[in-house]
Amino acid sequence: MGSVARGRVRELMGEVMTAQGRALPGDDTADLREIGFRSLDFSELALRVEDELGDELNFDAPGLRRIATVGDVLDFIEQLQSA
């Protein structure tokens, strides 16, 4: 399986936010609750990454973890791709 670079995942995350009429801040420490990035948005981001990969992400592999910031999302997607 190939991979989608972290910068590209950030762009896709920005597209998800824009489609919902919101903006993605440039700061990776931005709090997801404060910027309004919800579980549906996270799920959409995963689908966008899957569409670019042409493959499904394996969500069963990584252990559960707290995802609170933009950086956490990017880290998690990165981890999923290497799982």
Partner: peptide, 12 residues
């Protein structure tokens, strides 16, 4: 429906 993480299915 499309299979999706966290929510199980999403509307596509």
């Amino acid at each position: 429906a499309r299979k999706a993480p966290l929510v199980g299915r999403m509307v596509a």
